[in-house]
Lab assay of single mutants.
Amino acid sequence: HMTFVALYDYVASGETDLSFKKGERLQIVNNTEGDWWLAHSLTTGRTGYISSNYVAPSD
């Protein structure tokens, strides 16, 4: 899985979204569905959809 880092804080707007904080590391589970990616937070252990605009590759 690809690992990304959050560029900004994000508060989930629905049950399927994932809230995260700036600097949080996220593993991308599925990024084939446009701008919203299914991600797993390595910080909180939660999984949900994130906006690809809010993250950048961590490598």
Rank of each mutant, 00 (worst) to 15 (best):
residue 1 H to E: 11
residue 1 H to N: 13
residue 1 H to A: 12
residue 2 M to H: 10
residue 2 M to V: 11
residue 2 M to Y: 10
residue 2 M to G: 09
residue 2 M to F: 09
residue 2 M to Q: 13
residue 3 T to Y: 14
residue 3 T to A: 06
residue 3 T to R: 03
residue 3 T to C: 11
residue 3 T to F: 14
residue 3 T to E: 11
residue 4 F to K: 01
residue 4 F to S: 01
residue 4 F to W: 14
residue 4 F to M: 09
residue 4 F to C: 07
residue 4 F to H: 04
residue 5 V to G: 00
residue 5 V to R: 02
residue 5 V to Q: 04
residue 6 A to W: 01
residue 6 A to E: 00
residue 6 A to C: 08
residue 6 A to R: 00
residue 7 L to H: 02
residue 7 L to R: 06
residue 7 L to Q: 05
residue 7 L to I: 08
residue 7 L to K: 06
residue 7 L to G: 02
residue 8 Y to P: 00
residue 8 Y to V: 10
residue 8 Y to D: 07
residue 8 Y to C: 15
residue 9 D to R: 00
residue 9 D to V: 03
residue 9 D to K: 00
residue 9 D to L: 04
residue 9 D to E: 05
residue 10 Y to H: 09
residue 10 Y to K: 04
residue 10 Y to F: 08
residue 10 Y to T: 03
residue 11 V to T: 11
residue 11 V to N: 10
residue 11 V to Y: 09
residue 12 A to H: 04
residue 12 A to F: 03
residue 12 A to R: 04
residue 12 A to E: 03
residue 12 A to K: 05
residue 12 A to W: 02
residue 12 A to V: 04
residue 13 S to Q: 14
residue 13 S to C: 14
residue 13 S to M: 12
residue 13 S to N: 11
residue 14 G to P: 02
residue 14 G to T: 13
residue 14 G to R: 15
residue 14 G to E: 11
residue 14 G to Q: 14
residue 14 G to W: 11
residue 14 G to M: 11
residue 14 G to V: 13
residue 15 E to H: 10
residue 15 E to Y: 08
residue 15 E to I: 09
residue 15 E to M: 10
residue 15 E to W: 07
residue 16 T to N: 14
residue 16 T to M: 13
residue 16 T to C: 15
residue 16 T to Q: 13
residue 16 T to P: 05
residue 16 T to L: 14
residue 16 T to W: 15
residue 17 D to K: 10
residue 17 D to G: 12
residue 17 D to L: 13
residue 18 L to H: 02
residue 18 L to A: 04
residue 18 L to R: 01
residue 19 S to I: 05
residue 19 S to L: 06
residue 19 S to W: 04
residue 19 S to K: 03
residue 20 F to R: 00
residue 20 F to H: 01
residue 20 F to V: 07
residue 20 F to N: 00
residue 20 F to E: 01
residue 21 K to D: 05
residue 21 K to G: 06
residue 21 K to V: 10
residue 21 K to Y: 07
residue 21 K to S: 10
residue 22 K to Y: 05
residue 22 K to H: 04
residue 22 K to A: 12
residue 22 K to G: 03
residue 22 K to W: 04
residue 22 K to V: 06
residue 22 K to N: 02
residue 22 K to L: 05
residue 22 K to E: 06
residue 23 G to I: 03
residue 23 G to S: 02
residue 24 E to D: 13
residue 24 E to G: 00
residue 24 E to L: 01
residue 24 E to R: 00
residue 25 R to T: 14
residue 25 R to Q: 13
residue 25 R to C: 14
residue 25 R to L: 15
residue 25 R to K: 13
residue 26 L to H: 05
residue 26 L to M: 07
residue 26 L to I: 09
residue 27 Q to Y: 14
residue 27 Q to T: 11
residue 27 Q to A: 09
residue 27 Q to G: 03
residue 27 Q to F: 13
residue 27 Q to L: 14
residue 28 I to F: 03
residue 28 I to Q: 15
residue 29 V to W: 12
residue 29 V to D: 05
residue 29 V to Y: 10
residue 29 V to R: 05
residue 29 V to S: 06
residue 30 N to Q: 10
residue 30 N to W: 09
residue 30 N to H: 11
residue 30 N to Y: 10
residue 31 N to I: 13
residue 31 N to G: 13
residue 31 N to E: 07
residue 31 N to V: 12
residue 31 N to K: 14
residue 31 N to T: 13
residue 31 N to R: 13
residue 31 N to W: 14
residue 32 T to Y: 08
residue 32 T to F: 09
residue 32 T to W: 08
residue 32 T to N: 09
residue 33 E to H: 12
residue 33 E to Q: 14
residue 33 E to F: 10
residue 33 E to D: 14
residue 34 G to R: 08
residue 34 G to K: 11
residue 34 G to N: 08
residue 35 D to A: 09
residue 35 D to T: 12
residue 35 D to K: 11
residue 35 D to N: 11
residue 36 W to C: 14
residue 36 W to S: 09
residue 36 W to L: 13
residue 36 W to G: 05
residue 36 W to Q: 10
residue 36 W to Y: 13
residue 37 W to P: 01
residue 37 W to A: 02
residue 37 W to L: 07
residue 37 W to Y: 05
residue 37 W to D: 00
residue 37 W to K: 03
residue 37 W to G: 00
residue 37 W to Q: 03
residue 38 L to I: 06
residue 38 L to G: 00
residue 39 A to V: 14
residue 39 A to K: 00
residue 39 A to D: 01
residue 40 H to N: 06
residue 40 H to Q: 12
residue 40 H to A: 07
residue 40 H to E: 08
residue 40 H to S: 07
residue 40 H to T: 15
residue 40 H to K: 15
residue 41 S to F: 02
residue 41 S to A: 02
residue 41 S to R: 00
residue 42 L to W: 05
residue 42 L to C: 12
residue 42 L to H: 05
residue 42 L to P: 07
residue 42 L to D: 05
residue 42 L to I: 09
residue 43 T to M: 07
residue 43 T to C: 10
residue 43 T to E: 14
residue 43 T to P: 01
residue 43 T to H: 09
residue 43 T to F: 06
residue 43 T to Q: 08
residue 44 T to K: 00
residue 44 T to F: 04
residue 44 T to G: 02
residue 45 G to M: 04
residue 45 G to Q: 04
residue 45 G to E: 03
residue 45 G to R: 04
residue 46 R to P: 01
residue 46 R to G: 06
residue 46 R to T: 05
residue 47 T to W: 13
residue 47 T to G: 04
residue 47 T to C: 11
residue 47 T to R: 07
residue 47 T to D: 06
residue 47 T to V: 11
residue 47 T to E: 07
residue 47 T to A: 05
residue 48 G to I: 02
residue 48 G to W: 03
residue 48 G to F: 04
residue 48 G to H: 03
residue 48 G to A: 03
residue 48 G to D: 01
residue 50 I to G: 00
residue 50 I to V: 13
residue 50 I to A: 01
residue 50 I to W: 01
residue 50 I to H: 00
residue 51 S to E: 06
residue 51 S to H: 15
residue 51 S to D: 14
residue 51 S to Q: 15
residue 51 S to N: 15
residue 51 S to Y: 15
residue 51 S to T: 07
residue 52 S to P: 15
residue 52 S to T: 07
residue 52 S to C: 12
residue 52 S to G: 07
residue 52 S to Q: 09
residue 53 N to K: 15
residue 53 N to T: 12
residue 53 N to I: 14
residue 53 N to Q: 14
residue 53 N to E: 13
residue 53 N to C: 15
residue 54 Y to Q: 08
residue 54 Y to M: 15
residue 54 Y to P: 03
residue 54 Y to N: 07
residue 54 Y to R: 05
residue 55 V to D: 02
residue 56 A to L: 10
residue 56 A to Q: 12
residue 56 A to C: 11
residue 56 A to W: 09
residue 56 A to I: 14
residue 56 A to S: 10
residue 56 A to V: 14
residue 56 A to G: 11
residue 56 A to F: 09
residue 57 P to M: 10
residue 57 P to E: 08
residue 57 P to T: 08
residue 58 S to F: 15
residue 58 S to V: 15
residue 58 S to T: 13
residue 59 D to K: 08
residue 59 D to R: 07
residue 59 D to E: 12
residue 59 D to A: 14
residue 59 D to F: 13
